[in-house]
Simulated assay, not measured.
Amino acid sequence: MKPFCFADGHIIPTQTATIHPMDLGLIRGFGIFDFFRTSGRTPLFLEHYLDRFIASAEKTHLPLAYSREELRTIVRELIEKNDLVDGGIRMLLSGGVSENHFSPAEGKLFIFAEPLSMPAEEKYREGVKLLTLEYVRPIADIKTTNYTLPVWHSVNWKRLEAEDVLYHWNGEVSESSRSNFYIVKNGVIHTPDQHILMGITRKKILEIADKVVIRPVTLEEVWDADEAFISSTTKVLLPVTQLDDRKIGSGKPGPVTLDILGKFRALEKSSVA
């Protein structure tokens, strides 16, 4: 964590930031957050992340006492104060302290600056493994702080040499715990349309992809796919070459996946030029 954060309406030393122990974020796991990267001190795709954060606050009935312009200003001040050249910004709005300890209240806004470690290049070259998990994330279109199941499940991931999970329900897949999911068949990208968070990286991939279909995707189609990959702010795009104990396609990152990765990295560079 970088030395300065935003809390209590001011930029303060991060180590002094506090939250009430009866805040719903702690006792109920109720809150929202968002996270984006900086490159050369430029917040990547900032307006899209602000769109989602503001919408998440509205949908979860949490008052947000700051305007878009104020949030934008705070973010830029934090970047400069922390000399955050290439890192991450985490915005967090807690559930607040309510009279009945259950209903949403006026929460507390924190904005943190963080160092960022991207996946090892080997994972981009060789691909990663996912584990199937029967689950649908609650209110998936909102970026809530509720990650209880995958955090609990992650204890097994290192032992099983897995990067993450792939959620599925009634035979259809949705997303990974922190990433959107895609398959490639006959040169066409297919990505689920239901029970997912509308990722900002996903949004950009849909803009730069030549052939993409947004629709329900079955688990059987994943087994039969030529390629698969996941995308997120902190991963950009990682090829998925294994699901449980079965290879996907050739078991190596495919040409469509690598082409999209190259295009996305070029898009990032152009965004900070």
Rank of each mutant, 00 (worst) to 15 (best):
E220V: 13
K247S: 13
D193T: 10
T201M: 04
L133C: 01
A209Q: 10
Y182E: 05
N186R: 09
D164T: 10
P239H: 01
V136H: 14
E134H: 12
N180W: 07
W223R: 15
I248A: 13
I208D: 00
D244G: 04
I189N: 01
D210Y: 00
R137I: 13
A162I: 03
L160F: 03
K235D: 02
L160T: 08
E175R: 01
V184S: 00
K247G: 09
V155H: 07
Y182D: 04
T191Y: 01
E163T: 13
R137E: 11
F181E: 03
V212S: 13
N180A: 12
H195R: 10
S177P: 05
L243R: 01
I200A: 04
L160P: 01
S179P: 00
D224Q: 06
V217Q: 10
Y182G: 00
S174N: 04
E172V: 13
P192R: 05
I196Q: 11
F181W: 03
T233P: 02
W152S: 14
I196M: 13
V155E: 10
S177G: 04
I196C: 06
E221R: 14
A140F: 02
D244P: 08
H153G: 03
L166V: 10
G187I: 14
K235S: 00
R202S: 02
G171K: 09
P216Q: 09
A228L: 11
A162D: 08
Y135D: 08
Q194R: 15
V173A: 05
